[in-house]
């Protein structure tokens, strides 16, 4: 089941988007969230959609792959769409059936909100699909570095994130293994009442916690032995390099913002 999820997965490649500095991509996505809210009419939303497709093309990620991975989010989008459709009471009535009334403004709002959702989710996915988790972590650490002044443990947070990411596959394997071992002992986690299932999960969770703690302890020892004593005095192996293309992509986004402001009503 988890194998089918694409959110948070990295697809290796060598596209223009892949080669961008992770910081540029992060800044881009954050700015984009703001830019999306500039759009407020058909033209501006059309421009947004067009721009998104352009980015998809540039990332060379196959469309079906994106669409497939977005399935879980689709339900959320449909839900928001319906919410706006039925509860906005402005403009002319375009459809009426018994107590159900759909207004023109409701349809418009529903479509706009859905588009907004779509472009945001797609662009964030492209960020994670084209950037290794370690680069995202590094970028976050560098970007948040100024906050160290206010005692925010930026290095520690970044390290925690990178270690968590590194151990996800290990712990997934472990979960699978323990689940199978308990199933072989007759435990049944897939059928029965809610209470029975909750009880069946204990033999899975306890060994998993025990092993996670053991791993954490081992890892801490290994880190200590390898000379880890916090962020102080550490050098960095990963170097992020900001190139002209990174500046260019941010400038493009600003131009998009200006265009949107020009066309918004």
């Amino acid at each position: 089941m988890l194998e089918k999820m694409i959110f948070g997965r990295f697809i290796p490649g060598d596209s223009f988007i892949h080669r961008l500095d992770a910081r540029a991509k992060l800044i881009f996505v954050f700015l984009f969230i703001a830019v999306v809210f500039i759009a407020n009419n058909w033209i501006t939303y059309a421009i947004l959609v067009l721009f998104t497709f352009l980015i998809i093309r540039m990332s060379r990620i196959r469309l079906y792959f994106l669409v497939n991975g977005l399935k879980p989010v689709v339900i959320l989008i449909i839900f928001t769409f319906l919410l706006h459709l039925f509860f906005t009471r402005e403009g002319a009535i375009i459809f009426e059936w018994k107590f159900l009334r759909i207004y023109e403004e409701g349809l418009r709002q529903g479509i706009f909100i859905s588009i907004r959702f779509f472009v945001l989710v797609i662009l964030t996915s492209i960020l994670t699909l084209t950037t290794t988790p370690i680069s995202i972590t590094d970028a976050l650490e560098t970007l948040l570095n100024p906050l160290k002044k206010w005692k925010l443990p930026v290095h520690e947070l970044a390290l925690m994130m990178s270690i968590s990411l590194r151990f996800i596959p290990t712990l997934m394997d472990e979960t699978d293994k323990i689940m199978k071992a308990q199933m072989a002992r007759g435990s049944d986690m897939t059928t029965g009442s809610m209470k029975e299932r909750m009880n069946a999960i204990v033999p899975l969770l306890i060994p998993l916690f025990v092993s996670a703690f053991k791993r954490a302890e081992d890892l801490a020892t290994a880190m200590e032995v390898r000379g880890y004593k916090g962020g102080e005095g550490r050098t960095r192996y990963r170097k992020l390099e900001w190139a002209t293309k990174d500046t260019v992509i941010i400038v493009i986004l600003l131009i998009l913002a200006i265009i949107l402001v020009y066309f918004r009503s």
Binding site: R166, R234, Y237
Partner: peptide, 26 residues
Amino acid sequence: NPDNQFVGATVQDDVAFALENNGVPF
């Protein structure tokens, strides 16, 4: 345990870990 001492996200990051800790120049 081979798994529990692998700190880095990739092979090269892991090899670099102790070097980073000891402040070896880039």
